[in-house]
Computed example of a mutant assay.
Amino acid sequence: METDLWWMAWVDCFNGGNPGEDQPLLKLTRWHRAQAHEDEVKHLCGARCSETYMERWITSQREHPEAHCET
């Protein structure tokens, strides 16, 4: 696998500072072998896959603007 072409994405939590203001946060970074094995990490095969994943995530967030971080 050419790791310079692969990316990783996962959802984290942005803490809003007050109860109920937290919200999901999408993180995207270059491939890193150790982190790639984490359960929540999605493997993305380049810019096009990354853009598609991000667009789907944004659409989901627009459909559910009240969404908070999962506990």
Rank of each mutant, 00 (worst) to 15 (best):
Q35I: 05
K42M: 08
S60Q: 06
F14D: 15
N18W: 13
L44V: 11
I58Q: 09
L25W: 15
P19F: 11
N18T: 11
P65F: 10
C69N: 01
E40D: 13
H64Q: 15
H68T: 15
W6A: 12
N18D: 08
A36R: 06
W31L: 04
D12G: 06
K27I: 09
H64F: 05
D39L: 14
G46C: 02
E2F: 01
T3I: 12
E63N: 12
H64L: 02
Q61D: 00
C69V: 07
A36K: 07
C49S: 14
L44M: 10
R56L: 14
M8H: 01
A67C: 06
P24A: 07
L5G: 07
A9R: 11
C69L: 05
A47C: 12
R62P: 00
S60W: 07
H64W: 01
H32W: 07
Y53A: 05
K42R: 09
K42Q: 10
A34K: 08
A9T: 12
G20Q: 08
Y53W: 04
Y53L: 00
R62K: 15
H68G: 15
C45M: 04
P19L: 05
A34Q: 10
P65H: 08
E55A: 15
T59F: 04
W7T: 04
G20A: 11
H32L: 07
T52Q: 05
H43S: 12
D12S: 14
L5R: 12
T71I: 11
D12V: 03
W7A: 02
A36Q: 03
D12A: 11
M8S: 03
K42C: 01
E40S: 09
R56Y: 10
T59Q: 14
C45G: 08
T71V: 13
R30W: 05
W6C: 06
P65K: 06
V41W: 09
A9W: 04
T29F: 02
K27H: 10
M1G: 11
